[in-house]
């Protein structure tokens, strides 16, 4: 799906609020059931955005991280009353196992959110937000984004041609390879600096630095942005209220509490899940528009 459709059509401010809230709450709330539900919601968002392709790409490192935390937490932390086993003379407590699971869940959940962040918050949206804070830094960021592919391509060409004169990193003794690599990098950098001078000229020629700049890229704040923002803030208020009342956090140490959700926990969870799947409403709405369009033809 493209820009301007569903979740992606939202104003950068709304997108920013969504991710800022989603990540903050993900770190504030600490209840395995709640986090598992939130994780599922985040996966659902990913699936809606691109069929889960990007998320699958990251799934192996995420699972690896999950297992790593799961395993290391009980080994490193021996807090908790309920000892379930001994490894040598090291006690493994139920509390630290559950804590590890919850922690791993919270991290994997935040990572999942980040995967969808990369899909929704394009460079342009990010820079639009950022340009208000510091136009110059935003411009530098934009130039850097343009520079990277150029440098990479030139590096490739340089290595190809320099091979003909024996400057290569693929043959010869290690010391020679290292020296050659350094030579190529130095040449590349000298070249980049030379080019940067011309880029600077081109910027000056078009009046850069003659006064205050304005920003071309604009996103209109539409009615759907208003509604979504309102909904997000409403849910967020609910979550904050529940969290302020001490809900949404499970007692683990020193003695494992109950997994059962209290009324406050349920309120936090409903608010949070509502918050996370709020943009899906737009996805559904826009998809239905397509279906109707398709069935009419």
């Amino acid at each position: 799906m493209s820009e301007g459709f569903g979740f992606r059509s939202l104003h950068p401010t709304v997108v920013f609020v969504y991710y800022a809230g989603g990540i903050t709450f993900g770190m504030l709330l600490f209840h395995p059931v709640l986090l598992a539900a939130a994780w599922l919601a985040a996966i659902l968002v990913n699936v809606h955005l691109d069929g889960g392709r990007e998320w699958r790409k990251w799934s192996i490192p995420m699972v690896a991280g999950f297992i790593l935390i799961l395993v290391t937490n009980p080994i490193l932390s021996h807090r908790g009353r309920t000892v379930i086993a001994y490894w040598g003379d090291m006690p493994l407590t139920l509390e630290s196992v559950v804590y590890g699971v919850t922690l791993a869940m919270s991290i994997v959940f935040v990572l999942t959110l980040f995967v969808s962040y990369r899909l929704v918050m394009t460079e342009q949206k990010f820079l639009f937000l950022f340009a208000r804070v510091s136009p110059k830094v935003a411009l530098v960021a934009m130039m850097a984004i343009g520079l990277v592919p150029r440098l990479r391509r030139r590096m490739g060409e340089l290595m190809l041609v320099q091979r003909t004169r024996g400057v290569t990193v693929t043959e010869g003794p290690l010391a020679v390879r290292a020296r050659n690599g350094a030579r190529i990098v130095v040449t590349l950098l000298a070249w980049a600096l030379e080019d940067a001078l011309q880029t600077a000229d081109s910027m000056q020629a078009r009046g850069y630095g003659t006064g205050t700049r304005s920003s071309y890229f604009g996103y209109r704040f539409r009615a759907r942005d208003g509604w979504t923002l309102g909904g997000l803030l409403f849910c967020a208020a609910g979550v904050v209220a529940a969290w302020g009342g001490g809900h949404g956090i499970m007692d683990i140490y020193p003695r494992l509490g109950s997994f059962r959700l209290s009324a406050g926990d349920v309120a936090a969870m409903v608010g949070y899940i509502g918050f996370l799947i709020m943009p899906l409403g737009l996805e559904w709405r826009d998809r239905r528009a397509w279906r109707i369009l398709a069935s009419n033809n």
Partner: peptide, 8 residues
């Protein structure tokens, strides 16, 4: 748009 941005 870059030039026009520079001119505010």
């Amino acid at each position: 748009a870059f030039g026009m941005e520079n001119f505010g």
